[in-house]
Design a protein around this nucleic acid. Structure first.
Lengths: 339, 339
DNA sequence: CTGAAAGCGCTAACAG
DNA sequence: CTGTTAGCGCTTTCAG
């Protein structure tokens, strides 16, 4: 009862042509006469034939599948990116094979090894770090790899991020212009380049203005920890503004501020996030934040990856896309402030 | 520079055994002497050999990949489910190949055809409907299919959902017990079984109590449309309670009620949702809702699918898992109410 | 237990 | 343009 799968040979027989003729009519860049192609298509349609992608992959060396490593989908930025990534890839004839990495940073190397077993044409690593041995291994077997929303110093890894450093600077300039001087920062996981870059940009502007960080705590990119960080920071001498390393944490920070500590945002304290996830735009939060241009980040990621795959272009590229500060209601807006 | 892929033949040569010996030591249920296996493993390790999953799939007929059709990841319920699904499958040696279906309900049949091209071992269709021809086709080619969070009458399709009908009943009982009599409903997309079941259960209790629906509007499972539906319903003679077909819409409903119409929740109007997505638990919403037990839904989905794959068990099963009403602050709580 | 041989379904030279 | 012929890398009889 099972396995009623039609093969190209069966189609060939019915169409009265050779098996390779069938293959040709289903292979984009092949040569087949109109007549043959028609006969084949007809027979194929009658039989319900469809080429076996795996068999094709075996011989052609191209599986048309892209491995995606992703850590946790709780932060809305990732499902959004995943959806766009999948859509754009699908449009170009590729599909995503998902590999969940342990949140606990740790070794994603074995995960990548496993991906390689599937003969993927390329790999996208979202928000995870790879050892340089592993990236070397990918290069060895000729599988392009691009980091999404994370960057590494390794000159052999392509990466696309938003311009986190510039984003951090924008936040600081904005907060300073609004008159804030007691400014706190709730950081994400220190191992993430996004965290480091955002904070570095942020701090640099503060330093230029001769303003020090009034308070700092780590939220590890997790809501619960961000809430704890908030409590710690506000235990004494509270800041009048906070830059939270990403929106996901910022939502928890706002909830803690408002519902646990009875503070008003932005009257008592300004809050600024990073990412511009959907929830940041919801009325309940109305969070001022730096937008990561997901569409362009994804488009660039796909372009780089497919360029490497299809044109054997091995030059590694790293792109940081500038994202605007989105002014909403969670932070005081400086007088005379133009985007 | 590319294609430094080791094959079993190379390992065999180095280990001084036959290629089949290598295959056997890497095939779970195969017979190889301890000595041989050791030599092989050693050589494999030195060479960095890993079996080619695709080649294995070709001959064995098992690709260890599961196709997942999913429509849109904006509703937090899905990323959550996707993550759990992927993790559980990964643990059992399978991986998810993602196929995004057009949100516009329409034809996902071509998508499924495409999935079949990849020789997947099984298919999970999340929140989408399939034609029965398509499900028949899957059966034809021996690929098990299970519907996730959606059910269809087709007796040939396995499906796992929460008990949406019972959930709808719980909401109605709860609202009635709290004294509400002017009860409205904001529905999702009418084509979804979840919508129909939730509403049917809800209405049935109301009817038993001789209470009619005070108002009704469709939100199509989209936030913006849910906001519009809210405006429509509250344009005149507003209800004192609303059952929103899912949390995703309920969040938008609450925002509209509070920030656009200046109403208090639950003082002016009680709001109850369905799903218990993460955001429902955030302090800003604190939404009373019916929980869909994602963990158990996923576990059941995986069990059914793998049972069909690995044991050739073709019996179709449909499971509806009961989920509790989670009492939070968005709806008045009846006196003397025990879970 | 082990090697040799036969393919899985398809693409890619290779001659015609 | 077309058919024939090799394989892709691996699992699986089939003899030994």
């Amino acid at each position: 009862m099972s396995k009623n799968r039609i093969t190209s040979a069966q189609v060939a027989e019915r169409a009265g042509v050779s098996q390779s003729a069938v293959s040709r009519t289903f292979t984009p860049g092949a040569s087949a006469s109109r007549k043959t192609a028609e006969k084949v298509r007809k027979a194929a349609a009658e039989l319900g034939y469809r080429p076996n992608v795996l068999a094709r992959a075996m011989v052609s060396g191209k599986s048309r599948i892209i491995g995606l490593v992703v850590a946790y989908l709780e932060n809305q930025f990732y499902p959004e990116a995943l959806e766009k990534l999948s859509n754009q890839l699908q449009q170009r004839g590729y599909h995503l094979l998902i590999f969940m990495a342990e949140q606990s940073a740790g070794d994603i190397d074995p995960v990548v090894e496993e991906i390689l077993d599937y003969q993927v044409d390329g790999i996208i690593a979202a928000s995870v770090a790879l050892s340089s041995e592993l990236s070397a291994r990918c290069r060895d077997v000729g599988v392009p790899l691009v980091l999404f929303n994370r960057s590494q110093d390794d000159p052999n890894m392509s990466a696309v991020t938003s311009d986190n450093y510039a984003g951090g600077r924008k936040v600081a300039e904005f907060l300073l212009a609004a008159g804030h001087r007691k400014i706190g920062h709730i950081a994400g996981w220190a191992g993430a380049s996004t965290q480091r870059d955002r904070e570095a940009g942020f701090i640099s502007v503060l330093a230029e203005a001769g303003v020090g960080l009034h308070a700092r705590a780590e939220g590890d990119f997790q809501m619960e920890k961000a809430a704890q960080a908030t409590r710690a920071i506000f235990a004494s001498d509270p800041p009048d503004a906070i830059f939270v390393a990403n929106d996901h944490m910022a939502l928890a920070v706002m909830d803690t501020l408002r519902f646990e500590m009875g503070l008003k945002v932005p009257q008592d304290v300004s809050v600024v996030g990073f990412d511009d996830v959907p929830a940041a735009g919801w009325a309940a939060y109305n969070l001022t934040t730096v937008r990561q241009p997901a569409n362009r980040m994804v488009a660039n990621t796909v372009d780089i990856l497919l360029d490497q795959i299809e044109n054997d272009n091995s030059e590694t590229r790293r792109i940081a896309i500038d994202g605007p500060l989105i002014l909403r209601g969670s932070a005081k807006i400086p007088k005379r402030w133009s985007t």
